Amino acid sequence: MEAGPSDGGRETSDPLREAQARLLECQVCFEKHGACKERRPRNLPCGHVICLECVVALAHPETLAFLCPFCRRPCKSSDTSDCLPLLQLLEILAPRPTRPPGQAAVALQARPRAPGPLVLRRTFGGWGTLLNPTGMALGPRDGRVVVVHNGRRRVSVFDADGARVRQFGERGEAGGDVRYALDVAVTPDGCVVVTDAGARAVKGFDPAGRPGLVVRAPFRLPWGVAAAPRGAVLVTDLEAGALFLLQADVAAGTVLEARRLRAGLLGPRGVAVSSRDGAVAVLERGGPGLRVKVFSASMRLLGQVDPFGLSLLFPAEMSAATAVTFDPEGNIVIADALHGAVVSLGRPGTALDIRPLVTRGLSHPVALAYSEDKSLLVLDGGAHSVAVFKAS
């Protein structure tokens, strides 16, 4: 009679593989948990665990409420907490680095074509002045810095030296209500345009902060906004998957034109317009992560940067990209919130040219802008402040 297999010959499951599938991945997005920001595992009040990015994605932007995706128990993002046992397990299983962290970035900075590192010159704002800021824009005539945040008055205006000169957009204020601001732009005549996710509308204020414009149709969830030539603004719509052009008399509250420029975008968020040639960059969220799509001024697709192309050249994750802009030379620049970095991707339509601009001194960059003197302004959501960098 043929002998049966011994216990030692039985096929057993690999506990590490099982842990990888059941514990080390978020069961909503199926991305690996990690110790850094968006990938951090968070305990829900019901006991289930999902990553921080999924908590933010599921939560209502105004009330922070959502339902557990597994048991449907109501909760709020503010009620979640780090899953410490899982974080400790991740630390134990983490591979030991074979080279010092940041070595790849330093090597890229040393390339002959790379500019000198940008140096932090000053900061302004801070906790008590700005509360969880989300968007920033510069006035084209006076260099004033306009920031939208979650404070009592949603719009704060600073002069070129960083002193706050005006606040407006208080929630509940008649005519000037801003519920949950996501982004802001300043038109050539100094008017301020805000995307309000709480109201699902685009709202405008004259240079003195007086409300004048509220536009809901054709928008479903307006997100990013940027000033365009001839006084227009470009608006991305996350739910519609589209880019719109809005031309309006902001002070009078009159819409002159609102039309869709581009459809079929995947979760478009940030948008930027090059002052050099009118090129348009859109930060998309879809598929494996985020990507930047670049169009000419006539909306012809010039190219795109996806997570795979970026990871080959720089230790950053496109899934952590939070903002996009153009520098004065027309190079595309993105903020990497996971690593607290700012990276230049080169000119649209050319080969990818990765150049780290800022690799330290930032907590959670969420918006970028360049001033007339070519200083880089970074809105740091983690520090609730604006950081100003210049070449050394």
Rank of each mutant, 00 (worst) to 15 (best):
R113A: 13
P100F: 04
V343K: 07
P15Q: 09
R96M: 12
F326T: 05
V305P: 05
A137Q: 00
F219V: 07
D373I: 00
S311H: 13
D336K: 04
A240L: 15
M299A: 08
V214E: 05
A19L: 11
H384F: 12
G151Q: 06
R153E: 14
R153A: 15
A104C: 04
K76C: 14
S13Q: 14
V192W: 01
V49C: 15
M1E: 05
A321R: 04
V342S: 05
G287H: 06
R171C: 11
L302T: 09
V202P: 05
D7C: 13
R10K: 11
R99V: 12
A248L: 15
T134P: 03
A19S: 12
F314K: 15
P101F: 12
S311Y: 07
A226K: 02
W127N: 03
L302W: 04
L362V: 01
G172F: 08
A110Y: 01
E91L: 03
G143C: 00
S371Q: 06
L120Y: 08
G286K: 06
G190P: 05
C83E: 11
P211F: 02
V202Q: 08
P95T: 14
I50D: 05
I50P: 08
D142T: 02
G303Y: 04
L87E: 06
E53K: 11
Y370Q: 11
G212N: 02
D142Y: 02
F66Q: 10
E38L: 15
G169R: 02
S81L: 08
V119N: 06
R300P: 00
E239C: 07
D161T: 08
P5A: 15
R259D: 05
A367Q: 08
G102D: 08
E38K: 10
S6K: 11
A335G: 04
V324F: 09
V280E: 03
S275M: 11
S13K: 15
C51Q: 06
Q20W: 09
L130R: 04
V333P: 10
F124G: 07
D237K: 10
L243M: 04
L86P: 04
L362C: 13
D142I: 00
S319V: 14
R269P: 01
A57H: 13
A335H: 10
G231Q: 06
L246T: 05
A163H: 03
R179Y: 10
V178I: 15
M299F: 11
L120S: 11
G135A: 06
C75D: 06
F30A: 09
T322C: 14
V157M: 06
S156F: 00
E53H: 13
P112L: 02
R166V: 00
A383V: 00
A21W: 12
R73C: 10
A114G: 13
R216T: 09
F66I: 07
N132D: 08
G4Q: 05
G289A: 11
V155W: 04
E91H: 06
K293F: 03
A65S: 14
R276P: 01
G382M: 02
P41Y: 12
P97G: 11
P307C: 07
P85C: 10
A227V: 01
D336Y: 07
A316M: 09
A217W: 13
